[in-house]
Design a protein around this nucleic acid. Sequence first.
DNA 1: TCTGTAATTATTGTATACAAGAGCAACAGG
DNA 2: CCTGTTGCTCTTGTATACAATAATTACAGA
Lengths: 230, 230
Amino acid sequence: MSGNSAKTTDKPESILRKTLSATVESDIEQRIVEGVYGPGDRLDEEELSAKLGVSRTPVREALRKLAAHGLVTIRPRAGATVARPSMAEIIDLFEVVSELEAFAARLAAHRATDTQMRAIQQAYKACGKLAASKDAQAYFDANRIFHGAIWAAANNPALTEQIMSVDKRLAPYRRQITFHPTRKQDSESEHDQIAQALAARQQDVAERAMRDHVMILSDDALQLARDLRI
Amino acid sequence: MSGNSAKTTDKPESILRKTLSATVESDIEQRIVEGVYGPGDRLDEEELSAKLGVSRTPVREALRKLAAHGLVTIRPRAGATVARPSMAEIIDLFEVVSELEAFAARLAAHRATDTQMRAIQQAYKACGKLAASKDAQAYFDANRIFHGAIWAAANNPALTEQIMSVDKRLAPYRRQITFHPTRKQDSESEHDQIAQALAARQQDVAERAMRDHVMILSDDALQLARDLRI
DNA sequence: TCTGTAATTATTGTATACAAGAGCAACAGG
DNA sequence: CCTGTTGCTCTTGTATACAATAATTACAGA
C-alpha cells in the first residue's frame, strides 16, 4: 500500500467516494461563501439537517470541519454561527493572504509551465472583457479564475490550500468590493501588471505587484466594511 | 494510564468551557505531534474511544477536525490514519512555513513591543544554553518557544494560527532533526542572526535570516527523511 | 418601571443502535 | 502454485435517544 501512491492530487474538494457528510459540508460551505448565510448568522443543527434531508450527525461533523477552517464559530453548548471576524482579524487575514498570494506569484513566475502560463493569460483576458460589463458576479468569478490560475502555476498544492482556506474566510468582504464600479477598472490595471510580470517571468515584480494588488483590495474592503458598520 | 486526563496539559488554545470533544481532540493531536502515533498509523475509532473513555461520537468529531487541519487523513469508509505526506508534500509544506515564518520575523522586527522583544531575547538565550546539552527534547521545546515568541511579536494572530497549523503537520519530520548533534550548533548561529536583526529592528535582515533558517532545517529534514526512507 | 432570581425551554453534547460498504479469507478453478 | 471469485467480518456512516446546559422568560420585590 505504501508503494506507488503516485501523485495523489490532493485537492481539498476531491470527493472520490461520495459520503453524505462530505456533500453536506460543501453544501453549507457554499452557502456561507456565496453569502446566503452571512457573518454572525446562526447555524441551527436541526434546521440544517431538515433543510439538507439528513440527521444531525453529518451536519455536526460538517460544522466542526468548517469551524476548523475558521469559517464557522462554535461556542460550547451555544451553537454554531457563521464566523464574524473583528475588523482587526479581517486586517490580519488580508495581511496573511496578501503575503501568500505574493509568494504564489513569485513561484508562478519561476515555475509556471507553458500551459499554466497560457491559462493565466487567458484568464487575464477574460477578466478584462468582463471589467466593462455590469455583471459583477461574472467578474467576481473571472477574477477568482485568474487568481486560481496563478495559485496553480505556483505548483505548490499546500500553498494553494492555505490560500484558499484564508480566502474563503474573507469571501464575504471581498464580495462587497466587486459591486463597487470603480474598483473593477483599477483592479484591471493591477492585473495587467501582474500578468505582464508573470509572462516575462520577473519574480520580484510579480511578487510585488500581487502583494500591492491584494493590499489595495484589502484597504477598499476595510473602508467599505467601515462604511457599512460591519 | 487510562486514568482520567483531567489534567489540562499545555494547551495553547484557551478553552473557556471545556467540552469533552475539545479535550479528546487535543489529546489525540498531542499524541500525533509528540510522535506517539507516527505517520501512516491507523486511528481506530473504537480503540481511541476505549482509550479515552468516551464514545465514538466525540472521537469522530475530533478526527474530522484534525483531518481538516491536515494532521489526519480520512478515506471514506476506510478509516482515519495519521497523515503521511509524500516527499513532495513535505517540501511544499516547508516552503509555505518558511515564507510565513519569514513574514512573521519581518512583522516582529517592525511591531514587537519592548516586552515581546525581551521575551524573544530571553528565549534565544535559553536556546543557547540548551544547544550544548544532551537533552534534545529540552532543546526542541526551547526552540519552539523562541519561534513562538517571534510569532507572537508579529502581532497577527491569524498568521500565528496559520504557522502553527502547518508546523504541526511537519512536527514528525522536524523532530528527527533535533536529534542530530551537529544541527543544534548550526541552528544556534542562525538563531543569533535572527535575534540580532530583530533587536536592531532590521526587517529585511530578519526576514531573510528566518527564511534561510527554516529552509536549512527543511533541507536537513528532507535529507534525513531520504536516508530513513520515509 | 427596573432589576435580580428562578423555573422553563430549547439546543447542544454524548451515547448507542442499526445500516452499508470495504477489506479479508477461504475456496474453486486454471 | 497462482488467480479470480464469493461470502463473511469488521469498521465506518448515519440515525435516533437521552443527558446536560446555555438562553429565555416569568415573576417577585424594590
